[in-house]
Design a protein around this nucleic acid. Structure first.
Lengths: 343, 343
DNA sequence: CTTGCTATGACGTACGTACCTCAAGTAACA
DNA sequence: TGTTACTTGAGGTACGTACGTCATAGCAAG
């Protein structure tokens, strides 16, 4: 059996009350006594029974996902998973909510973060593009005692805040290699389409993509990124332009999480069967395109895993317990038509 | 706040003692009273607080992984993950153990299963090839009140027992399509190597593989399966034979979870750079081969996910709670050199 | 009416922890 | 010496559930 607070009290030679004061960092204990208790914790390997503690406290965890104000199919899938997790975790006294509140403007987004109250929220998962304003707002959130994870977009190295998402550089490289190998000995130009190249995620993917093409597939030349800005007419125009001006386009890499515009524009311009097309994120649309062999591969991150990973991290940090690192690595998935159905 | 047993007692118009008798299926309650309590459970949406219940019981979960007596690198990885999970879950009062005990002989394996005592074990995860003996032994285990999941190998449709693993037919199809696409317009023969074709898993992979090749890559002809039987000398001999007798072998599909023998044999016979080779399962060896570009792709299932999924299922069944289905789907992962490093 | 049985309720203790109150101890200071 | 502040211990109650004992009410058979 695991040692309890009673065992700890005995081992430290103090009373239960003092153990309690130390464990919960209450005032009124001499430094030496605190140390004695901490030594005893080490010695007997005491670990607080978090469930009993939560029971006594009547505690519940309140975590919130702060998502972009507007989004695409991928965001919708993420929201579905949040709701699923919400229903499942309610039994474990974890209250999950989400708000599609973060505007593109970093200043306004930072304001929203400033409005998160530590006495109403134990932790937040933030999905927003990197910016200095956001970084500051995050730091202040942490100082107020709110747990934070950066969700999907963001930088892995912004300590002490956890990041949940994939390495976009590697994701771009993966896309590049698949395109290169699927095109085999063919040579020609590759269309690269993004919603916007302002987001760090897109830039990283592009860098990873270009590195692989130039290193291992020099016969393929990636064209400068086309930006859709979420506008179908514009997208169709720029895509048509490209195909008209460049005779030897043999494939396309669709960078963003919204593949529909780009792919519909390509379909409207040329026969996709003659092109190798790789896009990102599994949505109902990309699934359909894979099945219809319009898309050749999809590079994806599992939304359910992302959501649960964020929640587990927030909970582990709230409990001051180390997370299980290997479980929280988000994998770069490659989807083709054959591994799409999970059973 | 969630309703408690007190609320339930009030709602059902009975005492706490009776609620307790009903909840824990103790005798001495009239049928009508039981129904009244059950109706009240529905009405107020009572869900037992499992943590408080476990606390009161002093309960801990005892789960055991029953693994093959002998195994390969993949099995070793699985064992690593079991030990990792074991350390992490001890804090949640989940005791995990494993035994490499199951021999190849189905009768002897069934004997081992017959020896699992319900009063010592809450659940077992069984990794063993399908067989009628095993099916019977499993059924008897369930009857004795032991939770069972079939782990990695086995049949998804053997109710009421959960299966944790991938659809091997789809895994084989995935391998087939990658091989086909990577080989692009090349035509020729494909070596298919397995440790043994006696296991259902291998047969299913082969079927999925053949289906894709014949349907979509008719220029590629898969050769009859070569079996290694775990013997390097034998493997080298049959592989060498194949390459000598068939001039136009352009790739290889390594079916089993032990890729080393087959790949070393190929390397000893021909230049792997001229071949497209696809194998299964991520191990230190297959990782290395991907990085060295001997292997072109690896079809894998995540061992950590498999292990944790099995444990979550066993726990959910023990608690009589429905598992979160979408979390327990094991994905067929495609690994290439670029998505190998997870951050 | 007694006996015996079943169904039910009342109540207590326990699990491991949090948090509160009160008493008592010690040490420093005036 | 008394006053004060700080430190510590003792003990209680609570969280939601399990599980035990005991009392009592109802009812049927003898």
């Amino acid at each position: 059996m695991r040692p309890t607070t009673k065992d700890l009290a005995k081992a430290a030679g103090v009373s239960l009350a003092t153990v309690d004061r130390v464990l919960n960092k209450r005032a009124g204990v001499r430094k030496e006594t605190v140390e004695a208790v901490n030594d005893a914790i080490e010695k007997i390997g005491f670990v607080r029974n978090q469930y009993a503690a939560n029971l006594a406290r009547g505690r519940n965890y309140r975590f919130e996902f702060l998502l972009p104000e507007t989004g695409d199919d991928f965001l919708a899938t993420v929201i579905d998973r949040i709701q699923e997790a919400r229903a499942a975790m309610r039994l474990d006294a974890i209250d999950i909510s989400y708000r599609c509140a973060l505007p593109n403007d970093p200043h306004k987004a930072a304001e929203i973060l400033a409005g998160v109250a530590a006495d109403e929220t134990d932790g937040v998962a933030i999905m927003a593009p990197e910016s200095p304003q956001l970084r500051d707002a995050t730091t202040r959130l942490v100082e107020r005692g709110v747990q934070v994870v950066l969700f999907i977009s963001g930088q892995p190295d912004l300590r002490p805040v956890d990041f949940v998402g994939v390495d976009n550089y590697a994701a771009g490289a993966t896309a590049g290699r698949l395109l290169g190998r699927f095109l085999a000995p063919t040579q020609g130009k590759i269309l690269v389409i993004s919603e916007t190249m302002n987001a760090l995620d897109s830039v990283e993917r592009r860098l990873g993509f270009d590195r692989v093409l130039s290193a291992d597939f020099p016969r393929l030349t990636p064209l400068p990124s086309l930006e859709t800005f979420g506008d179908l007419a514009r997208t169709e125009r720029v895509v048509r332009n490209s195909y008209e001006n460049q005779a030897d386009i043999v494939g396309a890499y669709v960078l963003g999480s919204e593949a529909r515009l780009a792919i519909e524009a390509i379909r409207g311009t040329t026969d996709p069967a003659g092109q190798v097309i790789v896009a990102h994120e599994r949505t109902r649309y990309t699934e359909k395109m894979l099945r219809e062999r319009v898309l050749d591969a999809v590079i994806a991150q599992n939304p359910g895993h992302l959501v649960r990973s964020a929640i587990r991290l927030l909970k582990a940090r709230s409990d001051q317990r180390p997370p299980l690192v290997s479980q929280e690595q988000i994998r770069i998935e490659i989807l083709i038509e054959d591994n799409l159905d999970i059973r």
